[in-house]
Each structure stands twice: as structure tokens, then as C-alpha cells.
Amino acid sequence: MPNVGFIGAGFIASRHAAAVTAAGARIVAVHDVDHAKAFAFAECNRAIASNSLSDLLATESIDAVFVCVPPDAHGAVEQALVDRRVPFFVEKPLPPNLDMARAISASIDRAGLMTSVGYHWRHLDRLEDVRLMLAESPAHMAVAQWHDGFPTVPWWGCQARSGGQVVEQATHLIDLCRLLLGEVVGIRALSSRSVPTAGRATGADVASSSAALVEFATGSIAVLASSCTLPRRHTVALELICEGRAITLTEDVMTVVDGARTVRLMCDRDPFAAQAETFLRALEGGPSDSLVSYTDALLSHEVAVAIADTARGARKL
């Protein structure tokens, strides 16, 4: 298995680190602008804490890097990896600045570099069951919901830094809608003008809730609703309404209502472990068709940003 470096040592990096080590890879180095976090992460993973990005990239044994930085910290990190021809996995979302995201994507394409983006819902073990059912009976409508608490990390509540809840969280559901229903051809959206109470003390400016109606080239439609006003996670799910059948998918379970019959199947595989193993195996020459390339991820990201921008710019009658 490859030797892996980490850029970013926060919560999501720790989750990916557990998946990487479970897959048999070795974490050899980490860099974070918060040196205390980097040293703690390094100690937990028996790695070296690098004082700078250049120091980390100078580590000769690194075969790939996991990029786990806040949305607005992207750009120079990815370009440095492209310049060094180091394959990388990057946690979503991509930069809220679409020009930057597109420039990174173009650089990756020119370099022919292997990348993967952390849309881990694509690695749910029940997703293939969903795709088979949709091949029998396509979805007329999707209802995507992400109702959750307000994250405490300082960058999350800043629209310019995170892109807001649709871009930072609900993008997972948007990506699945693209995968299952096709490309987006139309968007209508609204967001509340209020800021969540939990974020007011920190100067947050993200909307407390939003709703979007999305049209796909296949003729299907989707309703996306999100909110970050609750004390904890409440509903995160994608429901697909087909001819005579309803399919609901969460990270934990798939529920199928088919006539009078209801079937519930648990999602037994950890999608973080599955996506890490897929990326690491691909680095060694294994199949890469299930990786979410940066180019593909950019299409989902562009939809998420378009929904957020449309919602913020909508006017009331």
C-alpha cells in the first residue's frame, strides 16, 4: 500500500486517516497551519509533523496526499501537488470561488494526474441496488433533505469561506442527484434572510435555510431543502419517487416501499473506508472507474454554487 501525507489535521482528516490506515496504507507526514493540531495528528498516526507544505512535499516516501483543508484554503495546495505530480484525494467541497476550482481542474487535466474527491455517498454499499431499481423504473422526482445543527468551526458560518450549507453539506445529495437523474438544466431557489442563532455571536452570514427546485435533462425534477437551525442532525436523506415505488437512502439504511411491501436494508460498509481503499488501490494500478474525479466533482460543485447564488439573489414579489 502507498505511503500517504495529509494536508490538514482537523476532524475530517482524522476520519480519513482511520480509513487510510484500515486499508493498510501508512501515514508518513502531515502539515497544518495549526501546528498543535499537526503534532497531535502526527503522534496519533506515528507520522512526522511538517512545518510547511514544501517540507511535506519534500518527503521522498510520499506516494499520495489527502487534502483536508477548509473550502477557502484550496488553490495553492492543489497547484503545488500538480506541479510535483503527486496524486491526491481532496475532501469536498471544492473552492467556493468557481474560477479557482476550474483552474485547478484544468491543471489536473493537463498533468493527467490521478485525483479523487470525497463524495463518500457514492461509496454507500446500497447505491448499486438503487441504480438497478432506477434502471427498471426511473425516478420522476427526488426529494433531498439536509436538516442539521450549526457546525462550530469558525469558517463554516462565513458565506465567502464555506459557500454556505448547500455548498458545504448538501452538495453530497446534489452529487447523488446528478449521478442518478442526469445533468442539471434548470434551477430555482430561495433562502431565508435570517442567520442561525448559533452563528450570530461569531458574525456568521450564512442563511438558516434554503430550498431549491432543480430540473434535469432527463425530465426528472428534484426538491432540495436544507437548514442548520437544529441542536443536532435530524434528517439527511435522498428520496426517489418512481412509478409505483419509493426509495429512500441515508448513510445508514435504504428503505424501499413497493406497493404494500416495505423493505429496509442496512448500509453495512463504511463509505469512508470504501472510498479510501478504492483510491489507494487505484494508485497501485487497480480499477479507477469508481473514483470521483476532480472534473466530475466540479460539475456537482458548480450546481451547488449555482443553487446558493440563485437563492441569495432571489427577490420577493
Rank of each mutant, 00 (worst) to 15 (best):
C242H: 13
V166H: 01
E251T: 11
E60A: 15
L190P: 00
I27N: 05
P138D: 11
T255P: 02
F11H: 14
N97A: 12
M141R: 13
H74I: 06
G313T: 04
A189C: 13
I307Q: 02
E60M: 05
S300T: 06
E215I: 03
A282Q: 13
L298W: 02
L56N: 14
R178T: 09
G286L: 07
M254H: 01
E243D: 15
E277Y: 00
I241E: 15
I108V: 15
A38R: 08
S107E: 08
R46W: 01
S290G: 01
R15E: 11
D34Q: 12
V153E: 15
T115F: 06
G164E: 09
R261N: 08
V30R: 07
H35L: 05
V33D: 14
T310Q: 09
I247T: 01
T255K: 09
R264P: 00
D55N: 07
A40I: 06
I221A: 12
R233Y: 10
L213R: 09
A207T: 12
P70W: 03
T197R: 14
F39C: 11
E243I: 10
A9P: 02
A304V: 10
V30Y: 09
D289Y: 00
D109C: 06
A80Q: 12
R261W: 00
A246H: 07
T152Q: 12
R131C: 14
R264F: 00
I7Q: 10
N97S: 07
I247W: 00
L283M: 13
A211S: 09
H301V: 14
M133Y: 02
L173I: 06
V82R: 07
H147F: 06
R188K: 03
A80K: 04
A217G: 02
S54A: 14
A17L: 10
A274K: 00
G199W: 03
P138A: 13
D125Q: 04
N3F: 02
P96V: 12
D205A: 09
G286A: 07
R261P: 00
S192Y: 00
R261T: 11
T278R: 13
A304G: 08
T248I: 12
A273W: 00
A111D: 02
S50F: 00
A237G: 01
S210V: 01
